[in-house]
């Protein structure tokens, strides 16, 4: 495989009994790319993502993530990626600092490294005043920004973001995307799902899943041209409504 493709997927399939949740999807994601992974509820996004982050074994097909095979090297994948979602982010009853230390420890960082990372991260996010407060007491937007930073504490090659901005206020949502741009600019690949179609426009390329298959994959600009519509929302509606 090319060294530039940090995710390479070919004919990846997942079946549950008679039901094919993910049906032979193929795509590649390059280093430093922001890749939007869209689809209606139930289209198979979560199942596909679970295979890519090494927590679900595919029924058939091929996939490598950060150079590791999803069938044989799932544990190596887990160490080379970051993951955050709206549902599982940080521990509410630990403080900001404790959460950083905890996740740093999980990823095997030295104490010294955790101290350094912790200081940088708290400063970058402007969390100095709340560093010793419980995460549960922070506004959702702050939590999500912290959670994103923590998911990259071990300098992963790829970070997977599962609906990271759901319910977040519009200003914080944009600050969150500025963090995504920054990460991508530093060479981290960002794989992101969202229900906000304006966010789909922020991605370098976007794939849209319908009933387990990838029905469209291109830059937002080309998708809009292909479907002859003005915005990504209309692309989505055209595809997913059939």
């Amino acid at each position: 495989m090319s060294i530039h493709n940090v995710i390479q997927v070919e004919g990846l399939t997942k079946k549950f009994g008679d039901f094919t949740a993910v049906n032979a999807i193929s795509f590649k994601v390059e280093k430093g790319e922001i890749f939007g992974f869209l689809g209606a509820n139930g289209a198979g996004k979560t199942t596909a993502m679970k295979m890519l982050i090494g927590i679900s074994i595919p029924s058939s097909g091929k996939a490598t993530v950060a150079g590791f095979d999803v069938f044989t090297h799932a544990e190596s994948i887990k160490k080379s990626i970051g993951y955050m979602s709206q549902k599982f982010a940080l521990y509410d009853d630990l403080t900001v600092k404790e959460n950083i230390t905890f996740f740093g420890g999980i990823y095997g960082l030295s104490r010294k490294r955790i101290r350094q990372k912790s200081a940088v991260l708290i400063e970058e996010l402007g969390l100095e005043k709340v560093a010793n407060k419980l995460v549960g007491a922070l506004p959702l937007g702050w939590k999500q920004k912290l959670s994103f930073s923590v998911s990259m504490i071990h300098d992963p090659k790829i970070v997977f973001l599962d609906e990271p901005t759901g319910g977040v206020d519009p200003i914080t949502r944009r600050q969150f995307w500025e963090m995504i741009y920054k990460a991508a600019n530093q060479g981290i690949t960002v794989f992101v799902t969202t229900h906000y179609m304006d966010e789909a426009e922020y991605c370098d390329r976007v794939s849209i899943m319908v009933n387990g298959k990838i029905e469209a994959l291109d830059t937002p600009k080309k998708l809009k041209e292909q479907f002859k519509v003005a915005n990504m929302n209309d692309v989505f509606l055209k595809l997913a409504r059939g």
């Binding site: 209606a40 509820n41 759901g166 509606l237 997913a240 409504r241």
Partner: peptide
């Protein structure tokens, strides 16, 4: 409609 995809929202 929170967490619901754009099609179902519409």
């Amino acid at each position: 409609t929170t967490g619901v995809d754009p099609v179902s929202r519409k």
